[in-house]
Design a protein around this nucleic acid. Structure first.
Lengths: 103, 103
DNA sequence: ACCGTACTACGAGGTTCATCGAAATACGAT
DNA sequence: ATCGTATTTCGATGAACCTCGTAGTACGGT
């Protein structure tokens, strides 16, 4: 795989990128699942999203580059977790508002 | 112009459509301006967005169809206003979180 | 060393989207 | 009625995006 996964710093996160990342059904689903997981998870292993592996990579990268998710290598897997503190600091209420929405 | 402008009812508003509508820089700018206006405004007359009239129509329609904005005819203009109550009820905190973000 | 699993990189195909200009429509004012 | 302003509709264009399959890389286990 590649060397290190680049993440935007908190002050580099842009609201347009965050909203765009959350606007996709698949990515929103990922975020909802991640929101219920304290430790994060391997989306590829623990989630059945009905998409190909390469498409999943694309979505997780979009979330990561937008600053919504943090991704850490563990073995052959990547553990994704919500950047809840960063997002709540930057956009207080945004995440809760979205997660409160009926499916 | 056209007969009546269709708006989604509150329970027809979908989170993906709202997020997609807000994810565009021009539309986000419109929403920010609208958020500071109690009575709403004619985006075409009172806003200088650096886009053509037809593009503005496209953006306002996107916001309206997503349920973010309510549009009422007044004379030859259209007055747009934020659907704050609907959005706050459906997604409490979302709007405030977005508007709190530094430009 | 080898195999299997997890993931990524690289096109490619098809769809959606933002943008515009030109033409058309609606409405107020003269 | 006519004119000017505000807006919409239409069609076109180019960019961005979601999706996939294939091929490749990384890592753990046997």
């Amino acid at each position: 795989m590649t060397a290190v996964l680049p993440h935007p710093e908190r002050d580099e996160i842009r609201i347009e990128a965050v909203l765009h990342a959350l606007a996709d059904p698949v990515r929103l689903r990922i975020v909802r699942e991640l929101a219920q997981s304290v430790e994060g998870m391997s989306c590829g292993v623990q989630l059945d999203l009905g998409i190909s592996a390469s498409t999943l990579t694309h979505h997780v990268r979009t979330l990561r580059e937008a600053g919504v998710v943090r991704v850490q290598p563990r073995g052959t897997s990547r553990i994704s977790s919500l950047r809840r503190e960063d997002l709540d600091t930057l956009y207080p209420g945004l995440l809760n508002g979205i997660l409160a929405a009926p499916r």
